[in-house]
Design a protein around this nucleic acid. Sequence first.
DNA 1: CTGTAATTGCGAATCATTCGCATCTACGTG
DNA 2: CACGTAGATGCGAATGATTCGCAATTACAG
Lengths: 170, 170
Amino acid sequence: MITQEQRVRIRRQLAEVGLRATPQRLLILAILEETDEHLDAEAIYERARQWDAQISLATVYRALAKLKEAGLVAQRYFARDHRREYYEAVSKGEHYHFTCLGCGKVIEVRTPRIAQARQELSEALGLEFTHACICFEGYCPECAAKRRRGTLESRAVPRFTVGNGVTIDD
Amino acid sequence: MITQEQRVRIRRQLAEVGLRATPQRLLILAILEETDEHLDAEAIYERARQWDAQISLATVYRALAKLKEAGLVAQRYFARDHRREYYEAVSKGEHYHFTCLGCGKVIEVRTPRIAQARQELSEALGLEFTHACICFEGYCPECAAKRRRGTLESRAVPRFTVGNGVTIDD
DNA sequence: CTGTAATTGCGAATCATTCGCATCTACGTG
DNA sequence: CACGTAGATGCGAATGATTCGCAATTACAG
Ligand SMILES: [Mn+2]
Ligand SMILES: [Mn+2]
Ligand SMILES: [Zn+2]
Ligand SMILES: [Zn+2]
C-alpha cells in the first residue's frame, strides 16, 4: 500500500525538519497523506495497526505532536467537540472547515478573508501571528432545507467525512 | 456587590429566554457581566462561592450550558488548550481573541473580515452559519520584541488576562 | 561498528467535564 | 396564596481523550 517512492519522499521530508525516520512516523505520515478525511488519533491508530500490529496509541500521539511541531501535519477541531483532535497533512494546503450540525459532514472552504484579517490586525496592533484556529459550523444546504421543513432528525451523529472544497477569491 | 437593579435586569433577561431565575444563575450571570476577564468554570465557581457557599461546581457547569444555549454567555477557547473552556457575557459584544504565547495575555480584537467571509461563503455555497470558533495566537508586541532579542522565558504560564481591544473598520 | 540520545510500548495517571440520583424549588394554575 | 410538577440542585462517582513514567529498543552521527 505504501510505495517505495512514497517512503523515500517521506523519509526526506522528515530529514528536512530534523526528525528521526522511525517506521511508525513514516506509516502515520503516509496514512495522513493518502486520505482526504480528517482523522483522530484513534482512527490513525486503527489504520496503522493494519501495517504494524505492535504500534501503540501513545506512539501515535507522540508522533503527531512531533509532526505537528515540525509543520508536517495540522491539528484541527471540529464543531462543538474541542476535546477530540483531528489531523490532516499540511501538504493539502491552507483552508478552513465548516461542520454541518445536521449530518456531521465537514466541508473544506478557502477564503482570503482570514489572512486579510491577520494582516490588518498585525499592522494595526503590532501583533505577530503564528497560528489561527478557525472552525465554522451551521447547516449544509441539504440539512438547512430539511430543517426549514422540520424533517431533520435532531441529533445526527457527527461523522466528519469531508465534502467538496470551494474557493472564494480575492 | 450585586445591586438590586442588576438583579432585576438579569431576572428579566432570564425570563426573556425562558430560563428559570434560580439564585445560582443570577449569581453566575452577574459575575460574568461585571468582569472584563474570561473565566473558566472553576474560576466562576470560586467567585460564586463567596456569595453562595453551598453552590456546586456541577451547577456552574449546568448553568453555563443553559446560559450559552440561551445566548446570554459565550464559550471561548484560547490558544493551544482547547480542553479548558472559558466564558464571557455576550453583552460585551461581538469580537475575537488573540492569545500571546509569551505572556498569556488575551487581546480582544474586532474586524469585519470574519463576518465578510461567512457572508461570502454562505452565498457561494448555500451554507447556513450558526457559529464560528475563532482564536488567534502569536506574540504581543512586547513579547515579540523580547523574542527577537532572545529574552523571552520560553514557557510563560498563560494567565489569560485581558488586553486592550482594537477595531479594524471596513 | 559503537555509543548515546531519542523513541517506543505498555500500563497507569490526569483532569476538565458530565452523569446518576435523591432532594429541592420556581412558577403557572385554580 | 397553597399546590403540583417539570425543571434545578448538590454530591460523589464516572468518563474518556490525552499524557506520563519507565524499562527496553533503535536511529543515526562519528
Ligand atoms: Mn481539511
Ligand atoms: Mn472576549
Ligand atoms: Zn448536513
Ligand atoms: Zn505577550
